[in-house]
Simulated assay, not measured.
Amino acid sequence: MNKTSKDQYFILTFGYGNRVNYDTLLDYIKEFKIDFLIDVREKPRAWSRKWYGDQLEKFCHEQGIEYLSETTLGNVSGTSHWVSPDPKKAEQVLQDIAQKTQSKTVLLLCAEMDHHRCHRVEVAEKLQELIHLPIKHLE
C-alpha cells in the first residue's frame, strides 16, 4: 500500500464505539491507505473480543498494516481530557511514533465513537506538533 508523492498523509482518529465488526474500519483503511493503526487505549480490551488488542493486531496484519498498542497514550482522567498513566513515557512514545510515521498515514484508535468526547483528539494534536500532518476525525 505505497503512496505516491501526490497522496495526502493524515493523522486519523477513529472510535469503534458499539460496532460489531470491522467493516467501517476496513473501509477507512482502504480509502486512506492507512500504514499504522495505533491503539491509544490504556487497556486494549472491549465489550466485544473482536476489539481486543490481540484481535486488532491480527486483523491489521491481514490488511498489511502495522498495529501498535500504546497504553501510555491511554487516558486515566475519566473525562475527554487526556491524562496519561505515565506522562514521561507518553512523551517518548509520541517521539518514537513521530520518527516512524513522518510520511505515513496513522490512525489513532480508541473506544469512544464521538471524537468530541475522547482523549484521542489531544493525542492527535500532540502528534501533529511533531509530524505536522493534518488531523481528520473519522466517524
Rank of each mutant, 00 (worst) to 15 (best):
K6L: 04
L26Q: 13
C60H: 05
K43A: 11
S48R: 15
F10R: 02
H115I: 05
H119C: 03
F10H: 07
V121Y: 09
D23N: 15
Y16R: 12
Y9M: 06
L109M: 13
K104D: 02
Y9Q: 08
T24S: 12
C110M: 09
D54T: 14
Y9E: 05
L73P: 01
T72M: 05
N21A: 00
S48H: 13
E129Q: 13
K126T: 08
E129D: 08
E91S: 09
E125C: 10
A124G: 09
D114T: 07
T101G: 04
C118N: 12
E139Q: 15
Q102A: 09
V121N: 05
L127N: 03
W82D: 00
T24M: 13
E62R: 15
G17R: 14
H132T: 08
R49G: 04
E125T: 13
Y28W: 07
L127T: 00
G64A: 11
L56C: 02
V106T: 09
W51T: 10
T4Y: 06
G78S: 10
G15T: 04
I11N: 01
E66P: 03
G17H: 03
Y22Q: 14
H116K: 09
C118S: 11
I11K: 01
R120T: 07
F14G: 08
L37I: 15
L26C: 09
Y52I: 09
K43W: 10
H81D: 11
C118P: 04
S5Q: 10
I131F: 06
